[in-house]
Design a protein around this nucleic acid. Structure first.
Lengths: 188, 188
DNA sequence: ACCTGAACACCGTTCAAGT
DNA sequence: ACCTGAACACCGTTCAAGT
């Protein structure tokens, strides 16, 4: 007599995302997830391959959403304007899903990390625009400069690492403006 | 009959740093630290206030070391050259103490975080140089741009988040060069 | 004064037993 | 086929008991 399913991978990952955002990675226990979806913790192993696998699945979902957000933001066709729009879109996304965003760049154990394919797709949109504001030969380096600054700014903002006062919105706008100016300037 | 001391705060924090670098934050258990210093786990509570307090003390030690490294790197007096030297010094430090460096910017629970005073001291050296390459009124925003990029670059490098190929040393030199160019350029 | 074993409330994970 | 309780090996933390 087969026992009827009480949950699903999707329900588990969704519950996991909510718990992650509410209680942080430490609060994301299999027992909490199990309770949220209405089973006992051991039953989760029928759908997922343990806690690391759950974290990886959550990261993948966040990365896919962030990728879609990025694509949406790059619509004018003007690479300078698109990069600014993408930067703001990423920052807004990070504000809406702080723990999920942090997961994408966290130094997690091997096998917990986001699917490299998703990460590459994420870079592609920025890479394209960066190759148009900077000399094409510098496209990858230019994209890395933008992404490093963007992720660094958002990460520090979330970790409350900007201790001194001062308007962070203004600092963000200043940063992307000055970086684009540097990339657009002809290097000798 | 008083029992003789078998360990000290310094020994505990030092052992903790070694275990952190070797096994990561998850591996930094009080049992592992206790074994390393030759006592049982409950005895640690005579010196430190639990695991969070240990993490905070380790962060503080790392921050102080990084601060000293930064000061050492800024010696030419030329702010442009000093900023480049500081950027390289931070990256080298992060390579030497990857888990400790990550701790400084990790989104840790309240009460685990590094002493704000140390964080501010850390920024001060960069802030001074940034205020000389950019207009003085933009000093704080300029410093934040450099620090965000620097921390973002190093964090992504450590999280293996730069998936595409390409020379990272070259990308690093390119990044600091272009950012300084942007900061030095007169904004209209 | 410091150290210890025992205990408690949690974890993740495995597995035999139920339906 | 899926779910469950029990069990195991770990955690952090508290505390009474030892010296």
């Amino acid at each position: 007599m087969p026992a009827p399913s009480k949950t699903s991978v999707d329900a588990i990952v969704d519950a996991g995302r909510h718990i992650l955002e509410a209680d942080g990675l430490d609060g994301l226990t299999l027992q909490a997830v199990a309770e949220a979806v209405g089973v006992r913790a051991p039953s989760l192993y029928k759908r997922i391959d343990g806690r690391g696998d759950l974290v990886r699945r959550i990261s993948n979902e966040v990365a896919a959403e962030l990728g879609a957000t990025l694509e949406d933001a790059a619509r004018t066709g003007d690479p300078h304007a698109d990069l600014i729009a993408m930067a703001h879109a990423v920052r807004t996304f990070a504000h809406q899903h702080p723990r999920g965003y942090a997961l994408l760049f966290a130094p997690l154990p091997e096998g917990w990390r986001v699917d490299p394919t998703l990460n590459a797709q994420l870079s592609a949109t920025i890479l394209r625009a960066a190759g148009e504001v900077a000399p094409r030969a510098d496209a990858l380096k230019a994209a890395r400069t933008v992404v490093a600054w963007l992720n660094g700014f958002v990460s520090m903002e979330q970790a409350a690492a900007f201790r001194l006062s001062g308007d962070l919105d203004e600092a963000f706008d200043y940063g992307i403006d000055r970086i684009l100016a540097g990339l657009e300037q002809q290097s000798d």
